[in-house]
Simulated assay, not measured.
Amino acid sequence: MIGSTALLASPTRQAREAQQELLGRYEFAPLEDAEQVVVLGGDGFMLQTLHQMLEGGRIKPVFGMNRGTIGFLLNSWRTDGLSDRLAKAKSFSVAPLRMTVMTAAGETRVLPAINEVSLLRETRQTAKIEVQIDGRVTIHEMVCDGVLVATPAGSTAYNMSANGPILPLGSAMLALTPISPFRPRRWKGAILPDRSRISFRILNPDKRPVSAVADQREIRDIIQVDIEIDRSRQLTLLFDPEHALDERIAMEQFAT
Score class of each variant (00 low, 15 high):
M160N: 08
G154F: 03
R195W: 04
W187T: 02
T177M: 00
G189N: 02
S91V: 15
A157D: 00
I179C: 11
R109P: 01
L169V: 09
N159Y: 13
I114E: 07
V117Y: 00
M173R: 13
Y158C: 02
D194L: 09
R195C: 02
V143C: 08
P168S: 02
R185E: 01
A190R: 04
A172I: 04
A105Y: 10
T151N: 08
E116Y: 15
V101Q: 05
G146D: 03
T126Q: 00
A113K: 00
F182I: 15
I166T: 09
D145V: 06
V149Y: 09
D194I: 12
A105G: 11
G135I: 09
A127T: 13
G135T: 08
S196V: 12
A157S: 13
P184L: 03
T177W: 13
A105R: 07
A153H: 01
R121P: 12
P168A: 09
R197K: 14
L148A: 12
A172K: 11
A150N: 08
P96R: 04
S196G: 03
G189T: 04
L174S: 03
P193T: 04
F92V: 04
T177A: 09
G106R: 09
R124L: 10
V101I: 13
E122K: 03
L174G: 02
V101M: 03
S91Q: 14
V143M: 11
V117N: 06
D194E: 14
L111D: 10
C144N: 08
I166P: 01
A153C: 11
R186C: 07
G164E: 03
V131I: 07
S180Q: 08
L111S: 14
S171D: 02
S180L: 10
N159P: 02
V137G: 13
I179D: 04
L167Y: 12
T100M: 09
V147S: 13
F92I: 14
I166H: 08
L167G: 09
A113S: 13
E130G: 04
F182Q: 14
S199H: 06
S93C: 10
A127E: 05
V131W: 14
K90N: 12
R121W: 07
I133G: 10
P152R: 07
S155Y: 14
L111Y: 09
A95V: 10
A105S: 14
G106E: 07
R136L: 08
I198E: 06
K128G: 06
S199C: 13
L192G: 02
Y158V: 05
V131K: 08
N163V: 10
V149F: 10
L174C: 07
A153T: 03
S171P: 10
I129V: 04
P178M: 12
Y158S: 09
Q132R: 15
D134R: 01
M99P: 11
V110C: 11
A175P: 08
I139K: 11
A105D: 11
V94R: 05
S196F: 05
E107N: 15
L119Q: 13
R124Y: 02
D134N: 14
K188M: 08
P96M: 07
M173E: 15
T126W: 00
A157G: 08
T138N: 06
I139Q: 14
V137Y: 14
I191L: 01
E116K: 08
T100H: 04
R136W: 00
A190P: 07
T126Y: 00
Y158Q: 08
M173T: 10
I129P: 10
